[in-house]
């Protein structure tokens, strides 16, 4: 496969359906990262995310034969599979927070310890608030805001209408803002605002 020109995802999936392990390895190399980030943001745990990624790609082996090229982008199809495993994982596991995992603190780049601490606190509050959102709102925020997908792509991955994704995203953001300001564990990272709908 190394000598071949870059094959499309559709071709790789077709080859996986007929048992081509190199095609499977190539699909994994291309898309593991995006699936892993999606799962980690959805669960708030890198360890759980890695399990989900593994399960999702194993599911690809058996689903590849049923994949219909052109109906959906392969990346969105993979995220749709991962989403099912996220839902299962949420049902059966207690996830540990990203903040509790080794290496989380090492991600900070600030040199001032106080700024660094404040930044970590704000990030931790945000992560907790995202993971605490109801699944349908969390999915919209993770795909549209964290992964910067268009409404159309997010709708494909989630299997719903574009308008549904948009309204879920807006509702999720409103919940996020409210949650972050109501908890009062730390100073609210968002500017205060009062809404008066005329």
């Amino acid at each position: 496969m190394a000598d071949e020109p870059r094959l499309s995802d559709d071709v790789l999936i077709a080859r996986i359906g007929s048992g081509d392990r190199e095609a499977f390895a190539e699909l994994y190399r291309r898309h593991k990262s995006v699936v892993s980030r999606f799962a980690a943001h959805m669960c708030g745990s890198r360890a759980t995310a890695e399990d989900i990624v593994h399960e999702a790609f194993v599911a690809v082996i058996e689903s590849a034969a049923r994949y219909r090229p052109g109906r959906t982008e392969a990346k969105l199809w993979l995220l749709g599979i991962a989403r099912n495993y996220v839902r299962r994982a949420r049902a059966i596991r207690r996830t540990t927070s990203l903040d509790e995992e080794p290496g989380a603190a090492a991600l900070a780049v600030e040199t001032d310890p106080l700024t660094d601490l404040e930044r970590q606190r704000n990030l931790a509050s945000l992560r907790r608030a995202i993971v605490a959102l109801p699944m349908r709102y969390r999915e919209a925020i993770v795909l549209c805001d964290l992964h910067e997908f268009s409404y159309a792509d997010a709708a494909t991955a989630l299997g719903c209408a574009v308008g549904t994704v948009r309204s879920r995203l807006h509702r999720g953001r409103a919940l996020l803002a409210r949650d972050l300001c109501i908890r009062q564990e730390h100073p609210c990272p968002l500017p205060a605002t009062t809404r008066t709908i005329s």
Binding site: R21, F24, A25, Y28, R29, K32, S33, V34, S36, R37, A40, H41, R46, H54, F57, V58, I61, L98, L107, R119, N122, L123, L126, R127, I130, I141, D145, L146, H147, E148, R173, L176, A177, P189, L190, P191
Partner: peptide, 30 residues
């Protein structure tokens, strides 16, 4: 402000290609 904060969360988990060990593990599952 929410968008800015979410961008920080997004960059907290960078894109990272799988290493050879990961690929071998998933191929074993295959």
């Amino acid at each position: 402000a929410i968008s800015l904060a979410l961008r920080r969360v997004a960059s907290d988990i960078p894109e990272q290609s799988p290493d050879d060990l990961e690929v071998r593990r998933v191929l074993a599952a295959f």
